[in-house]
């Protein structure tokens, strides 16, 4: 399968990439190409020009300095293997390590993954639970938005044409118990249901909890009912059962499904995977 003919330019800087995509609405940013190129080969996407940001040093690198800063061009494999990510937000390393297969993890980037906002993606769910911040550059300057507000709907984010994601910032969660678990699609490995939990523990009591769900929903989202059910509890069976039923109502207005895995099935599985996530977090 061949894509429609297109122009290709390698951006010389982030500002250059912004300018080339703001001047021309038919132009698209190219990062790892693992979502965009398949769509182009199927001719489901026919941009006239690709602006390649993959060699921009400004968008690379991971650093941990109070908070974790991940360049948008970091690949899933780099994030999964990063000692800084494992220390500050281990469940993000887990999620990136579960993306697709080796080829996808070696090319696909975190910036591309969240810009694309496939509902079946893994990293967005952890970023929402972790309270991450997305940093964006545009011709008028820079702005930042919380992960929770960034993901709006199916393939729909807060990002506008002519904007480039520069980095993703994650708070230091090293003192928390956290986990990401997913039910992978048997063929693509994309998430049918993914649940991220981040627990602040005080002895055996859960002081506070953050829970996010993806895969089952049109976009990654917080599950506040489940968070309340876990907070203040000792995470015993009663609390887990209450949280498992709360998460199902939290996501009831945003469910998605298909012929193989209908909405009702994914909704039920969100409860099952929430329990697994809490157990995995407590290790």
């Amino acid at each position: 399968m061949w894509p429609k003919e297109f122009d290709y330019v390698r951006a010389s800087s982030v500002d250059d990439a912004i300018q080339q995509t703001s001047d021309n609405t038919d132009a698209k940013i190219l990062a790892g190409g693992h979502s965009l190129l398949p769509a182009m080969k199927l001719r489901l996407s026919e941009p006239g020009k690709l602006v390649d940001i993959s060699r921009l040093a400004d968008l690379k690198g991971i650093s941990a300095n109070g908070t974790l800063s991940i360049g948008a061009m970091s690949t899933h494999a780099e994030i999964a293997a990063s000692a800084d990510v494992q220390q500050y937000c281990a469940s993000l390393a887990t999620a990136c390590g579960m993306v697709g297969d080796h080829q996808v993890r070696n090319f696909g980037t975190l910036g591309g993954n969240i810009a694309h906002a496939d509902p079946a993606s893994d990293p967005p769910t952890v970023l929402v639970a972790a309270g991450a911040t997305i940093h964006i550059k545009r011709s008028r300057g820079e702005r930042s938005v919380s992960a929770e507000d960034f993901f709006i709907d199916l393939f729909t984010t807060d990002l506008e044409d002519g904007e480039v994601i520069t980095r993703i910032e994650v708070p230091n969660l090293s003192g928390h118990k956290a986990a990401y678990v997913k039910m992978p699609h048997p063929a693509s490995r994309y998430a049918i249901v993914g649940v991220a939990v981040i627990l602040e523990m005080d002895g055996d009591t859960c002081k506070s909890a953050r829970v996010a769900v993806g895969g089952a929903t049109v976009s990654a989202m917080r599950a506040s009912g489940a968070e309340s059910a876990l907070s203040g509890s000792s995470l015993d069976d009663a609390a887990l059962n209450a949280a498992a039923s709360a998460v199902q109502s939290d996501i009831s207005d945003a469910l998605m499904g298909d012929v193989s895995y209908p909405e009702s099935y994914r909704q039920a599985m969100s409860g099952v995977y929430l329990k697994r996530a809490v157990k995995a977090a407590l290790g």
Binding site: L44, L154, F155
Partner: peptide, 8 residues
């Protein structure tokens, strides 16, 4: 229509 990277 344009939904994410897909459009036509």
């Amino acid at each position: 229509l344009k939904i994410g990277a897909i459009g036509g």
